[in-house]
Structures are given as structure tokens and as C-alpha cells.
Design a protein around this nucleic acid. Structure first.
Lengths: 254, 254
DNA sequence: TATACACCCTTACGCAACGTCAATGTCAAC
DNA sequence: GTTGACATTGACGTTGCGTAAGGGTGTATA
């Protein structure tokens, strides 16, 4: 089946201007141009547009989308499975917002009390932003662009209070971890306390804590040399030790 | 509790720039300005910001939000119940998207076939846009601005084919309805056929059909003089007749 | 007491992702 | 052969902020 701009647009629920713009920025070029200069799209373009819209729906910038879908290593099937996950996460966030509304309604009816902090639960889109970063990272790492400093930006949005608490916690983690490492037992009391402190520290950055994510991060400490270097600075092997402690802590051993 | 820009910003998960901008456009002004020119926000502003963020999350433009929340007739509690509904609708749309991904994955695995149309199900945000319109209408109707012609714009996004089909269907509805009206029986075969045609016609405009919505629309044909006039043009009483037929058709009688 | 440092302010330019004309060419139908 | 709905390329406008630049404020620490 072949489509002109309008046909494809109405099929996908987007404007013709959008299609021309996508052509202009090189994100979706028509299969061919006919003798009158009309853009003609084919099957491949339809499928690609679907992918683009999935990414767009998930808040990825067109610039990043371009990097992703034009990469020779792009794997459509793999991307779909990722979309599924992100969409489920998005639904979780929506559920939090709905819970927020319900609570606020109860508040107006005087049935409950509610802190100011609670009133904004579900709005913070850090999860979504992290996704965007992940998407970006995946492709940028392959092409060697920078992305590291971005995470630092998040810290800038903290209040002084929060910042102080967070750095204090971080210090506690490394301290406890050093003592625990001396015992050599990742299942021991000290190591488990370090894991617990690490979790507390994490919750400053994550809107939602999950054991799986915690365990995944711990594994990354070992897999990613940047992090390994950070934890191993004073004592080689500490990163691995922390990972083991966290795996035990979360109950995810594998 | 009193907040400066940064405190309120980190509480709500937005930037200080955003707060200053909201002040600038008059959507959220601080409770007072202290002796050094600092913006100080109080309890009322916190609650208002929450409302603003709900609207924003639902895709309402800041301009519309301003109209809504600054209106003297604004009813926060009522708005919250609406937010709840819209959020649930948004979740339905998300579910459709997730279903879409699942289907597309099945497609890549060769388990099913899928039309191009299906590939874009869940993306079309007509529902959401309608919401936006409704929000706007509610307030604009109160202030007498125009909003009628907007719905016509939707038609412009159809292909010629679709447009032809839709007008043909519309004609069939009025024709069948005229015959049915002559029988005088809204439960009769002809009237039920008219209701069925009306449903088919509707699906061109609605992304999701539901009996409740269909019945609700039918009632509106009677309640809103603009629509009543349309159906009663040739034969007074036709709008009411159609409503009765649809109520029987959908099984929602009340 | 100074000086560091994290706050606050206003002004102003920048940017993404299109919407919206304007001016013009194309094609099928009546 | 002239409508009328399609298509094209500029080009400027809009929304909702991000991001300096340049400068005052408030308090803790050296």
C-alpha cells in the first residue's frame, strides 16, 4: 500500500505538516518522490512511523529518536519489548496520580489529612526522565558521545537540607561498607546495614524503589568500570562486596 | 507553612524558572513579596499549584488553565472529580497503546497479521483533545467565547474516501430515521436499524465506542437545542425519537 | 570582619516541535 | 475549462519553559 502525506497522516493521526517536518529533519523520509514532487510512503515507512510515535509518546526528543532509528544497529523487535516496559511504567505513574486525586478528594471532604509533599506525588517525572536518559545512553554509548554529567544536574534541584542529608548518607554508606568489608561477610550484620543505608540513599534519587532495580544497580557497580573505580578506590573488591551484600539484602541472588 | 521559589519548586518537582513564569503569566502569583523582593508562597498557592499541575498533566494549555483557575466560579472539589475521570480515560488510552505493542510484537513473531490502521491504534489522542475542548468549553461557554467551529476542523483530517463514507452514512441515518419515525415505534426494527447506523457513524469520530457515551450523546440531542434543531428540521419530535431508539438499542433506559 | 556560598531578583535570548499563512503547482471530476 | 481538494516550498509565529548574564541578600565560617 502506498500513501501520500494526507493519507498517512490521517492513518497515524498526525498532521501533514508533521510528516513534512519529519522529512525535513531526516527522521522519516518518503520511499520516493513522484513526478510531481509528491511524497510517497510505503510499508517500511509506515512501520518506522509507528516506532517513532512510540518513542515520542514516551517523551523522547526527536533528536534522540533520529539517533536511535537511523542507527544501523537498530533492532525493531527489541525496541518494541522496551516500549512495552516503559509504557507499563508510565501506567504505574498514572496510577500514582489517580491515587493522589483520590486522596485529595478525601482531603476536601475532611476524611483524611495530607501533607503538602503528598499533594505532589505522582507528578515528578524522574522515572520518565530516566527512561529518556536510558534510551539516549544506549545509543550514545555506542557512538561514544557524552552523557555522564547529566545526572549531576538532578542534584542541583535539591534543597540545601536535602543535599546535606544525601551527602551525609553517602558518607555513612562508604564508612559502614569499609567496616563490613573488613569482616569479609556480605551476609553479616554490618554489610546488611550498608545495603540498607544504600537503599535509603537511593530513595533520594528514585521515585519508586524496587528490589529488582536495586539489585540491577548493584550489578552495574561491578559491570561498569566507572562505578567500580569509585567504590574500589580505597579497597579493591569493595564494589563486588557491595553487590553481594545488596543481592542478599534484596533476596535476589541468581 | 511558607515557601520560597526553590522550596516550593522542589516540593512540586518543578523548576524555579517555571514558578517565576507562572507568576509572570498570572497563573500563580505568590501570596506576598517580602522586603527583599522574594516571592513567598502560602497554603492557598500550594493547593492551586496542585490543581495547575493536574490540568497540565492532562494536556491543557497554560492559557486555558489560567481561564479556568482564575475564574470566580472555579470549584476545586468539582475539578478534582473531573481530573479523576480524565486520568482514568488516559489510562484506558495507555492500555490501548500497550495492547498495540503486544500485537505488534506478535506480528514480528509471525503469530498474527495486522492492518496498517491497527498499527496506530491508541496513538490518536482525539479523546484527550476532546477533553481539552470540554475543559475549555466549560469555562468559555460561561464567558461567551466561540468554540463551535473547532469541531469542524476534525473533519479536515479525513481522507476523501472516509469523508464520502461518513456523509453517506449520515444520509442513511436521517433517511432510516425518517421512515422509523413514521412507524412511531422506537423499539421497532427500523428505529433499531437507525440506531445501529448512528453507532457506525459515530465510530468515525470516536476512537472508542461505549454504550454509555452513545446513550449520553442521544440524551444531548434532546437537551441541546442546536442538535434538536438539526434532527427536528423536517419533523419535530425526531430528536426525541432517536434518543429513545438509542436508549433501547444500548440497553440503557434508566 | 571579610569572604564564601547558596539563595533570591530581573532581563533577555534560545529552543523544540510543530501551527499557520502565503504563493503556487497538480489532478480528477463535472 | 473551471472548480475544489489535493500537493509543494518558504517563512514567520507560538508555547513553555532552559539557560546565561549581571547583580542583590542572608548567614555561616575562617
Amino acid at each position: 500500500m502506498e500513501y501520500t502525506v494526507q493519507k498517512l497522516g490521517s492513518l497515524a493521526g498526525i498532521s501533514t505538516r508533521t510528516l513534512r517536518y519529519y522529512d525535513e529533519i531526516g527522521i522519516l523520509k518518503p520511499a520516493r518522490i513522484n513526478s510531481s514532487g509528491y511524497r510517497i510512503y510505503g510499508q517500511k515507512e509506515v512501520d518506522r512511523l509507528q516506532q517513532i510515535l512510540f518513542y515520542r509518546e514516551l517523551g523522547v526528543s526527536l533528536d534522540s529518536i533520529k539517533d536511535i532509528v537511523t542507527a544501523p544497529s537498530f533492532d525493531g523487535a527489541h525496541a518494541l519489548r522496551e516500549h512495552r516496559e516503559r509504557l507499563l511504567q508510565k501506567r504505574e505513574q498514572l496510577d500514582m496520580l489517580i491515587a493522589n486525586v483520590d486522596k485529595t478528594i478525601a482531603l476536601t471532604e475532611g476524611r483524611i489529612k495530607m501533607s503538602d509533599k503528598e499533594k505532589f506525588e505522582g507528578f515528578k517525572q524522574k522515572m520518565i526522565d530516566d527512561n529518556e536518559k536510558k534510551y539516549g545512553e544506549e545509543i550514545r554509548e555506542k557512538y561514544g558521545k557524552d552523557t555522564v554529567e547529566k545526572s549531576n544536574a538532578k542534584v542541583k534541584n535539591m534543597t540545601q537540607e536535602q543535599y546535606d542529608e544525601v551527602t551525609a548518607l553517602a558518607n555513612q554508606v562508604t564508612e559502614t561498607l569499609a567496616h563490613a568489608f573488613a569482616t569479609g561477610d556480605p551476609a553479616g550484620e554490618l554489610a546488611q546495614k550498608a545495603a540498607d543505608l544504600h537503599k535509603k540513599w537511593l530513595t533520594y534519587f528514585w521515585d519508586q524503589y524496587s528490589k529488582e532495580a536495586h539489585a540491577g544497580l548493584a550489578q552495574m557497580y561491578v559491570d561498569d568500570p566507572r562505578f567500580t573505580a569509585y567504590y574500589d578506590e580505597k579497597q579493591p573488591g569493595t564494589a563486588e562486596f557491595l553487590r553481594d551484600a545488596i543481592l542478599i539484602y534484596t533476596g535476589i541472588k541468581k
